[in-house]
């Protein structure tokens, strides 16, 4: 019975990681950049919703939409103000600049809002759903369903729409993409916007069960990043698989092995993947290794 609960808990929290991983993949697909400020979009979605709900007294649904939009707009700002000026810089510079963005966003959130934790009401009550002797908060059903829908939508978006294909093309070869008339700059901006929207949504959806605060983005961002790598960077289905595997490993190692070392086990798994299968579970072998 315990084992089922571990599994259910793992899938629940893992689906939240998956949603964040999707954000990483969106930007990676369009630009080849890993955005270290991704966790801050998650935070903005959550803290923004809290702000609009508790302080401006918006109805819950509008508060959440505003929170998500706030994350999206921040995504555009990050791209316009810090990524575009150094689009052709080395990976190292891009990593550092996004780290700078994350410090800045976190600092502003701390000063504009506060340093406390905050909660939102659950979307459909707090009465847990029982399932084979395990219990799960209804909020997690929301998260799981939203992650699966997002994954399918985005998979389709990249495969079947012109904008999606343009995004993929400009990631693979920006010069060629430009030659065939793709506005690479606009594509990059879109990718940051959409990615921030998805991460903001993850943040807003999680807040009722996990609570939120200005500094929650670091750890969630890292977990989301790990999920994206385990699944296979750039793969939408990989994000879901990676997120859920990470969640399950975390849950089982906390329950069965040691709760103190659970994060070490999670990161250990990540390293193992990087060493043995850097393309991730669903990825194809790419020449990222020497």
């Amino acid at each position: 019975m315990d084992l089922i609960q571990y599994l259910v808990s793992g899938i629940s929290i893992g689906s939240a990681y998956a949603l964040i991983a999707i954000g990483f993949n969106l930007i990676y697909n369009a630009t080849g950049i890993i955005n270290f400020a991704q966790g801050e979009f998650v935070m903005l979605g959550g803290m923004g919703s809290v702000y609009f709900y508790h302080y401006l007294h918006f109805p819950l649904i509008f508060a959440i939409l505003s929170g998500i939009l706030l994350a999206g707009v921040t995504g555009i700002l990050v791209e316009r103000l810090s990524i575009r000026p150094i689009r052709d810089a080395s990976i190292l510079s891009l990593i550092i600049v996004t780290i700078g963005d994350s410090i800045l966003i976190r600092g502003i959130a701390m000063l504009v809002w506060d340093k406390n934790s905050h909660a939102l009401p659950s979307f459909s009550g707090d009465i847990p759903i029982r399932f084979l002797g395990a219990a799960v908060s209804p909020q997690y059903i929301w998260i799981i369903v939203v992650s699966i829908i997002s994954m399918l939508l985005l998979g389709g978006f990249f495969r079947y729409t012109i904008t999606g294909k343009a995004m993929l093309a400009s990631s693979v070869d920006p010069v060629a993409a430009r030659l065939v008339g793709i506005n690479v700059e606009r594509v990059t901006m879109y990718s940051f916007f959409i990615s921030a929207l998805f991460s903001g949504m993850a943040g807003a959806l999680m807040t009722p069960v996990t609570l939120t605060s200005y500094d929650i983005g670091i750890s969630l961002g890292l977990k989301g990043f790990a999920a994206a790598v385990v699944g296979g960077l750039g793969r939408m289905s990989g994000a879901l698989v990676g997120g859920i595997i990470l969640g399950i490993v975390e849950s089982f190692s906390a329950g069965l092995i040691s709760s103190g070392y659970k994060d070490a086990i999670t990161f250990g798994l990540l390293l193992l993947f990087l060493y043995m299968r850097p393309q991730g579970i669903v990825g194809e072998i790419k020449a990222e290794r020497v």
Binding site: I34, F225, L233, V290
Partner: peptide
């Protein structure tokens, strides 16, 4: 670790 490059190396060292 140093068989990895770019973002993968960043992630591995971070881990």
């Amino acid at each position: 670790t140093l068989k990895l490059r770019g973002h993968y190396l960043a992630m591995a060292t971070l881990g």
